[in-house]
Amino acid sequence: MKWIRITETENIPPREGRVIAAGKELPADPIAIFNLGDRFVAIENRCPHGGGPLADGIVGGATVTCPLHNWRICLDSGRVSQPCDGAASTVRTFPVRVDEGVLLVGISETPR
């Protein structure tokens, strides 16, 4: 697991998400990082419905609602919680940690 330094925690206000530009150590699809108030979570910034930008969604608890057509995605598991659609694919999640006010995202070295 590689830990990539991303940004200072204050750049992501409580209960909001922000998009991280793709970089050479990060996956080609941008990552969204959310501040849940008491912790941070990171997932791929692509809604499984139509590719909507999840970072722009409204956060309630550990769920984000996609701004385009209101699909709800669990930020811990990456699973779609609404609508109930068994075929919906799961959004990739990434571990996050905070080190002296800086957010780090963990990328597994063997790409999936």
Partner: peptide
């Protein structure tokens, strides 16, 4: 603007820890 209100965040230097 509010913190990174309109920007895409550019990752800091790509350091491996």
């Amino acid at each position: 603007p509010r913190p990174s209100q309109f920007v895409t965040i550019q990752p800091m230097e790509h350091q491996t820890v």
